[in-house]
Amino acid sequence: MDAFTTHTGRAVPLRRSNVDTDQIIPAVWLKQVSRTGFEKGLFAAWREDPSFVLNDPVYEGASILVSGPDFGTGSSREHAVWALQQYGFRVVIASRFGDIFRNNSTKMGLLPVILPEDVVERLQDAAEADPKTEITVDLAERQVRSGDLVASFEIDDYTRWRLMEGLDDIGLTLRHADAIEEYENGRQPWLPTTV
């Protein structure tokens, strides 16, 4: 995964709540066995509507999605994260996220930023008033800045460190292979196996 320290880009205001992962990437796109090509399926049904915000050319090249609450609820499909990243998003800002989506995002280096709903709406207002508005998302400082708006966000130290270093979780866990083996030796004897 690519390291994430700070990112400055323009924003797309998505004024919808409960943007579930079926909307982000419909199930028909989940048949692929590769990890690429999902940008075409991003919000596939909504993009058929010419008035959908992603179809507005003024937002072309934007890299920060600013959404209503409960973004990424529903299915665990990581394809939703891949689709957003492959389309060009580096950050999603919302007041609440689905737990699994948020987890998947941090594994892939897509930064989910939780801000209070009124701050989210101010960012949406700004992006609507002037689509050229730039937002800086500073992971090192845990801050979102745009014009005279400065908002702090919370993220745990460990996830922040891993994102900033661009570290592979599996590699980190395998450093503790001895602890895993020791645990395995003490597991309850009646636990089932699939063989």
Partner: peptide
Amino acid sequence: FGIGTSEVEHVLATQT
């Protein structure tokens, strides 16, 4: 609980 594909890979490789 449900997990994404990165975590599926993690569990396959480490069982944790």
